[in-house]
Amino acid sequence: MGTKANSSLDANLGQNLLKQMILIRRFEERAAEEYTKSKIRGFLHLYVGEEAVAVGVVQALNQEDYLLSTYREHGHALARGMNPNVIMAEMYGKQEGCSKGRGGSMHLFDSSLNFFGGNAIVGGHLPLAVGMALASKKQNKKNITSCFFGEGAAAEGEFHESLNLAALWEVPVLFVCENNRYAMGTALKYTHSMEDLEKKGEAYGIRSVAVDGMDLLAVMQAAAEAVEFIRETGKPFFLVCKTYRFRAHSMFDAELYREKSEVEEWKKKDPIPKFKEYLLKENLISQALVDELERDVEQEIENSVAFAENGTWEEASNLTRFVYSELKQP
């Protein structure tokens, strides 16, 4: 993969994508710190190690495209351009958060960016993605829907029903399976009878590709091809990104199910240093600029924590808001 994409990589784009990955990484590391200080509670699922997937796929989309994700969605939200301030505030439960504090870490939403959440029921958003794409088709819109989920989700009935429906109805969905090899503590080989997950897409007649999810350039190229195919044909596409989560499943996980050495092996494939080295080697960035990006990111994160700290608690008298719509049908 990659020579075409590599040679055409624009320096600004490369710098921007590197910055996005660093932002996601550092933002989540900070979130974990705030969790240990009890500023953030509930479930917190980190994406550390998987950044190239969100960044590589989301950059291939345009503003009109719809996005849906799981409870491990900070990376997708940031890559989509959501403001770190409102994400941090959401995780603090403050009303300045992107979901007014009601959702927390697992339920980030921003309809202005066509970011439709944060779904915490595994597989629950796949049928929604099919429906959104169906709506686009009915409305003759040109946008596509992209939907991120783990390999664990591919064992759910909803995954199979959704792929079949998308293929049957010929709707423009990009299914992105983030195969990080573990569903909580259960390894791929204990959850799937067949480990080449892309074959599951093929079984439904869906064009399916597996790609190295630790390599941003490879993900970018695969995503570009997938998106182009969907826009041209209006049909779904199944993209499997082979990746790895460096940290625990959530903050409650003692990681009894995998060897430390395995994690260390995968850390050698860390997508961030790899992409940075590439940019340096190709003279698409200078070390001074890398340092500047890192300082900018630190500042953005400091700002987000300050924003969250200064946020306010919603009055308990508002508790029953948003159960039914406050707007009336036009």
Binding site: R41, K94, R102, G103, A316, L319, V323
Partner: peptide
């Protein structure tokens, strides 16, 4: 229980 989907912040 109050008839609302349960919100995230502790006080709510």
């Amino acid at each position: 229980g109050v008839e609302v989907p349960i919100p995230y912040p502790k006080h709510l």
